[in-house]
Simulated assay, not measured.
Amino acid sequence: MSKPLIIVESPAKARTIEKYLSNEYEVFACVGHIKDLPRKELAVDVDNEFAATFVVMEGKEDIVKAIKKKSAKAPEVILATDPDREGEAIAAHIVEEVTNKNISRVQFTEITKEGIIEGMQQRHEVDMDLVNAQYTRRVIDRLVGYKLSGLLWRTLKKTMSFVKGSLSAGRVQSAALKMIVDRERLRAIFKSATYFDLKAELENDALEGFNADLISIDGKRLATGKDFDSNTGELKKEGVLLISSAQANALVQELQNGPWVVSSIEEKPQTSNPYAPFTTSTLQQEASRKIRFSAKKTMRMAQRLYEAGFITYMRTDSIQLSQEALKGARNVIKKLYGDKYLPEKPVMYKSKVKNAQEAHEAIRPAGVEFAHEVGATEEIRIRDLSGLLTRL
């Protein structure tokens, strides 16, 4: 007797899910999108509510044929593509290709045994709002790229003799190019300015070595970088003192032998909250800053970790954590550091992004127990980063 069929995107994820479900299901990977707009025509009817024609992608014919064959024999078809708008569109395209009416949609935000069992218990239909969101993005891509690229090339080729090859416009790349041009124009009009300040390295028998900055002279504050206009390089604040190199050197000679007096010491209590858990963009930023990974490489590593069940879904704009995550993080704090460092209540974060969808929780180690593994492999370094910001 045929097993129920689960369709996912990744072969690696298929193997993991099949193992966790004790081989009671057949898990098949469609390897990403199976349908798209045809390459050599617009395929968008702008006069008919932008109706789009999607066709089976080149090279995906055998996969679609296999899906049709397997789904026809299966008592049930479960669509477990990625939990985002791209995954939802893939699920919708699969529905169009299969004849089996016993079909449902599930979502796995983490590829752990608990996460898969929870997802399998929450069957629902394909979310057409998400599907339409993906269709809209794809249609805009096509209209901008297909319509404007040729016009851009023909226009610039006539006016700029150095344009030899083809040029393209795009929904994202054209906007990004505008930002680059704007920044270049600001750079072109920037006027650099030079300012000087003084720093002293001090020590005595009672105090360890410490640094001191010259703040003011005769009650007049010295200019610092924030006092200059970032666009023009000109001093924008009145009442501050701008000293020259000669004046700075003269002050060094004058102050060299002191006397130096610590007139007062102030101690102020300071509290700080941990950084918010990772979203997709903050994970990419931190991976670039700390381990010098490109955004593309970071997402490739994160995808592997998600598919192997080590972290939650890596495409998210949410900084919220589930109750399972909060419980797991608090258990780690208690185990490693004791009750002294365990706060009474977890810190709750609220997104400052107005249009944040927050369909999934933040990126974190998957499961209810956060394994701590130190290593030098690229996947482990990204995994360590994801755990670093799951702090309460």
Rank of each mutant, 00 (worst) to 15 (best):
E358Q: 12
G309L: 00
G258E: 12
F162S: 14
N211D: 13
N257R: 05
N48H: 10
N204H: 07
Q173F: 08
S149T: 03
M160H: 14
I363V: 09
Q253H: 12
S230N: 07
S244H: 01
E234F: 04
V172G: 10
S386P: 01
T280S: 11
K73V: 12
K226Q: 13
D384P: 00
T377V: 05
S322Q: 05
R123N: 12
K65L: 04
E234C: 02
D36G: 12
E114M: 08
I382Y: 02
A366N: 01
E373F: 14
A80T: 03
R330T: 13
K65W: 08
V181T: 15
A169P: 00
I117W: 15
V144Q: 03
I380Q: 13
A176I: 12
A200V: 13
G328Q: 04
K191N: 09
L42N: 07
E379R: 03
A14T: 14
F278T: 06
D82R: 02
Q270K: 15
Q247K: 04
S351M: 06
Q256G: 08
V374G: 03
L214S: 06
D339I: 05
R330N: 14
I333H: 09
A12W: 03
A295Q: 05
I6K: 02
P83R: 02
E76Y: 07
S288P: 00
G367A: 03
S216R: 03
I243Q: 04
E41W: 01
L255M: 15
T112K: 01
V262Y: 12
I117A: 14
P75A: 13
F310L: 09
G150C: 05
S10R: 00
L305N: 02
K327N: 15
L5W: 01
R304M: 06
N273E: 07
Y349Q: 08
M57C: 11
P259R: 06
